[in-house]
Nucleic acid binder design. Structure first.
Lengths: 144, 144
DNA sequence: TTGCTTGCAAATTTTTTGCAAAAAC
DNA sequence: GTTTTTGCAAAAAATTTGCAAGCAA
């Protein structure tokens, strides 16, 4: 599934990248489409997908597979990890490995060649954990 | 997306579980359908999906999101990690955390509540790494 | 001008759902 | 006998593709 390298810069590509740049919410393709569509009302979702793929191929953004519903996109290209909140669904960047690197040395000894790794932590984010603490003794809410 | 708990045992459910039991290849739903279909030729893919979900809900199997093409299923329910080979696509179970637990204590200190985590390592599996070593100086092969 | 990229619509792929019939208990 | 589960077909949701027209270089 190798795609031909992109050769031209277009407004569509620029806007797709800008819609993601500096964003920490790890949006799905459709949300990126929604954002770009405000500036380029004629853009199609297919073009958003094509440009997201180009950006991934060029290493400018990354794909995240965290939900059954589809791929998320992340402009943070440094090696990092993610926290997924079970309650609110938020995905938070973690930089654990900067202070607590995962020890994969045993794999090399077993004959594996390690390129990258990704760590995903599931649980309650700071906000949802605090909320639960506050409402500790209340009976389970219906539908919030 | 909460499903009602299953109340009856059926041949379909049993066969879906048996098709996965003891398997270490982390198959997609369609491959499980293919296997079960040999024993129950009238089963439908929809039933395989429904039964896979039941088994996940009951904690008998787990869902793995590793590929863009869809979910894999894993009968290994103990806490473990995965290695994905970039060349052959194989997914191998890893039990790194039994000897090298990932240190997530800093998250608790920051107010997160951690439920589980998953670590996925990418690279070359033992077989593909060995093959590369053997054919080190050869020009890139076309189509294997 | 040349040929890459886009927009549109249709196609694909994976997974889910409605409903009558079949099976479980 | 009642209620759950199945099979089938159709629906949904996410993503990809063919192709003529538009745009970048």
């Amino acid at each position: 599934m190798r795609r031909a390298a992109r050769k031209r810069t277009t407004r569509q590509l620029e806007q797709v990248f800008k819609a993601l740049e500096g964003d920490h919410t790890h949006p799905f393709a459709h949300e990126i489409y929604r954002r770009v569509h405000k500036r380029l009302p004629r853009i199609s979702l297919a073009t958003v997908y094509r440009n997201l793929h180009s950006l991934v191929d060029e290493g400018k953004i990354r794909t995240l597979l965290l939900d059954e519903q589809g791929a998320r996109f992340d402009p943070e290209t440094s090696q990092h990890d993610h926290f997924v909140c079970e309650r609110c669904g938020r995905v938070v960047d973690l930089f654990l490995r900067q202070t607590r690197p995962v020890d994969l040395s045993s794999l090399a000894k077993q004959g594996y060649v390690v390129t990258t790794h990704s760590l995903t932590v599931h649980g309650l984010c700071q906000i949802c954990a605090a909320r639960r603490r506050t409402s500790r003794s209340q009976r389970p809410a219906r539908k919030a």
